[in-house]
Amino acid sequence: MEKKVLVIEDNTQNMRLITYALQRGGYRVISAASGEEGVDAAIRERPFFIIMDIQLPGMDGLEATRRIRASPANGDIPIIAMTSFAMRGDRELLLAAGCTGYFEKPIDPLTIVDQIHEIIEEESL
């Protein structure tokens, strides 16, 4: 059975590309174009993991992550952040908000699934 994963990303091109990669990796992708939408979907669908763009219009990725983590049912869902750039204290900021790990854009569709698996496995160790 295909595992549900949630991708929260406002950039449609990136969403499309990452969806191709995840589907190729055997996942069913639920997409959300905004933070609010993503939070609802996460609580409703209880995906296997969530890919979260940090730079979102309106509610940003960090806030969305915090809200998802605040829901008792979703406390342990891996949330992998996507960042456009590395900024000072990024890593700490992301982890503090509740992210499991992160990767940087641009994504390489050929390697992204491996990267995600690495992050989740690291976490589950």
Partner: peptide, 10 residues
Amino acid sequence: LNSIIGFSSI
């Protein structure tokens, strides 16, 4: 650019 690279690669 990322789109160009990503889509051409898949």
